[in-house]
Simulated assay, not measured.
Amino acid sequence: MAQKIHFISGLPRSGSTLLAAILRQNPRFHAAMTSPVGGLVDRMLEAMSEDNEFSAFISHEQKRALILGIFSAYYHPQTDKEVIFDTNRLWCSKLPLIEELFPDAKVICCVRNIAWIMDSIELLIRRNAFDVSRLFNNPAERATVYSRTEALSQGSRLVGYAYNALKEAFYSEQSEYLLLVDYELLTIKPDKTLSLIYQFLGETPYAHDFEDVQYNESEFDKKLNTKGLHEVRSQVEFKPRKTILPPDLFERFDGLSFWTEATNSRASAIVAKAK
């Protein structure tokens, strides 16, 4: 595809939608919440795998062209912007694929203390007290804050999968493609954070308006019965508050921020150092 492409990935409730909303202010950039491209790529890879009896007739070059075709078919009719940011948490688990398809691409990974991610999701669940969130599979998972956080932390679920994929990417051979961006720093110092992001991308700086950020995907959130999941406030700011998690739960998830120590990784990071 003719356009330059980068990726936004990382952890949920960590600022990926906010970052996309800021980046899209730049008239050269296209950015949005999670797109279907990652899922389509996954399905295509499965369709071309050994489970398909006709896979023997699909060469490496054809596989590459088919995957590239997904990006072109999705974005070419939608936008003529010069730079595309595709958002999906699975990209952290697809760095070898990204390296082969888009060797100049970068992956911006939004991160946040896991305890505060669980707190943020729990706050949404409580605010939507009359709705049955589709983030959970059954009444047993939805029953209590303990069962909800336990479900979300499983390896195939919203938080657990993203965390494991991020960890894989952070310690991978392709870790130099990553830039980790901490949610708190993004909201406390958005101007400085965006300046460093532009520097990492090799892009010309742009004067973003952090007082008037606009983005809304309320219809998508309604389908998940979790209103506010992708809500972005117009003003970028950090609002400290007390956690609503029980102390033992907060302690369980606190301290899992492996990215504060850059040992054994070539990833760049805009994060607070470990104390």
Rank of each mutant, 00 (worst) to 15 (best):
C92L: 11
S93N: 14
K94I: 04
L95V: 03
L95K: 06
L97P: 07
F102C: 06
F102T: 02
A105E: 10
A105T: 09
K106Q: 09
V107K: 03
C109M: 07
C109T: 06
C110F: 06
V111E: 07
I114T: 15
A115I: 09
W116S: 11
W116A: 02
W116M: 09
D119H: 12
E122D: 15
L123S: 15
L124E: 10
I125G: 04
R126M: 13
R127I: 06
R127A: 13
N128T: 11
A129D: 13
D131M: 14
V132T: 15
V132C: 11
V132E: 14
V132K: 13
S133V: 10
S133H: 10
R134P: 10
R134L: 14
L135C: 05
F136D: 05
F136H: 12
N138M: 04
N138Y: 01
N138R: 07
E141K: 10
A143R: 14
A143L: 04
T144A: 05
V145Q: 11
Y146L: 01
A151N: 04
L152D: 05
L152M: 12
Q154K: 14
Q154S: 12
G155S: 09
S156R: 13
R157L: 02
L158D: 05
L158M: 09
V159W: 05
G160W: 00
G160C: 02
G160I: 00
Y161A: 02
A162R: 10
N164I: 00
K167T: 01
E168W: 03
A169P: 05
F170M: 00
Y171A: 01
Y171W: 09
E173P: 01
